[in-house]
Write a protein that binds this DNA or RNA. Structure first.
Lengths: 209, 209
DNA sequence: TAGAGTGATTACAGTTACTGTCATCACTGA
DNA sequence: TCAGTGATGACAGTAACTGTAATCACTCTA
């Protein structure tokens, strides 16, 4: 056996989720997490850059999975098809995890503004990585970012609806429906998405500030 | 004259933007900002909940403006039309501001991860408020959130393209084009946005983790 | 016009998230 | 056997915040 208990990183993650759940994020000190994991505060900060990051250890793995799927899409796939592959990969990975743990983590995160903040960054980073993968496939910069953003919208709200939904639909099915809804929504606006006309025609001079 | 110099909040905002620009966000202490504004650190934290918030004083104003426009859209407008009104309002307001100040602020924010984090939250909050306004108009919850998310995508990337673009197109025009691109993108995927089939047909059992 | 609020500010002490640095010591490979 | 190596601990320090009490120009009222 080693000099120390194995998997200190994992123990810290487990301790943190437990404590954040029990007493809340800002009622928990880094020192307490470390103590529960049988380590010191200094070691906590050697494993995680800050107190929030301990909840987002898996995000890199998920992101890499999604990006790999996008990059590996058929050469004939357009940007939205490629992005669909990425979402399918995410659904595979998350669908394999335990829904109750996902809900627990989601509960902790949405209960605290600082944690929500961090989650938004992770989603944004994932979107940027997906966009980069699309660009590498030859997609124009602008379209790549729009497609990646749409994918992140579907991913985020898909996970939420799936985790808390009544029915037992798979995450992939939920996301599929979201994509369809999004398409219908944009289509329905074929009439007047024109901006310039709205702002200048209707209130010609009434802008203050 | 009053007991103190007027507009301490404004002086703090100005001092902060200047110092963050000059020496960077984390090379600046709250105490230094307060000192430049002729105040104390404690007063800084009475005006702004944290060191980042001082850069986002105007975000509430913009959000309220956008939400009001969405809420005030014609009763016959669909969700995307209503959201278009909101974007037009945002374009009016930002178009009136000085582009160089917007660029300076954008530069400071994008140079620091903590500030990018905060900006994402503001955008997300704005999206939530827009979604709420849509729901009040009778739009289904799901569609409201999708429309609001799309609007935030257009708002964010629109501002960026407008602020750094070579041409002199108005912000409204840029956003208009983005909406059109987004629509075209979603339409192009009419072939296969189907998720479930992709993940199960192509790699039946190969999920690890 | 005295005198009781009011509200923005200062002063000061405290907590805690995080960082830098050096020491420790089981393990590894030559 | 013995010089690395790498994860950890020990300890001191900085700065972002927070709580609380005091100050004092201003305002309102009797």
């Amino acid at each position: 056996m080693g000099r120390w208990q194995p998997d200190s990183r994992g123990r810290l993650q487990e301790a943190a989720l437990a404590l954040y759940s029990e007493r809340g994020f800002d009622q928990t000190t880094a020192s307490q997490i470390a103590e529960r994991a049988g380590l010191t505060e200094r070691t906590f900060f050697r494993h995680f850059v800050d107190k929030r990051e301990v909840l987002f250890g898996g995000s890199t793995v998920l992101q890499d999975h999604v990006v790999a799927a996008v990059a590996g899409a058929d050469a004939t796939d357009g940007p939205m098809q490629a992005v669909g592959r990425g979402l399918a990969a995410a659904a595979d990975m998350l669908g394999a995890g335990r829904k109750d743990l996902i809900r627990q983590r989601h509960g902790v995160i949405s209960a605290n503004p600082e944690l929500r903040e961090r989650e938004l960054v992770k989603l944004s980073d994932c979107g940027a990585a997906v966009a980069a993968a699309l660009i590498k496939r030859g997609v124009r910069d602008l379209l790549a970012h729009l497609a990646a953003d749409a994918a992140m919208t579907v991913l985020r709200s898909g996970i939420e609806r799936w985790a808390y939904g009544d029915d037992d639909r798979s995450l992939a099915m939920v996301m599929d429906e979201l994509l369809a809804d999004m398409k219908a929504l944009l289509l329905s606006a074929s009439a007047i998405p024109v901006l310039a006309s709205q702002s200048t025609d209707i209130e010609p001079e009434s802008q203050h500030v």
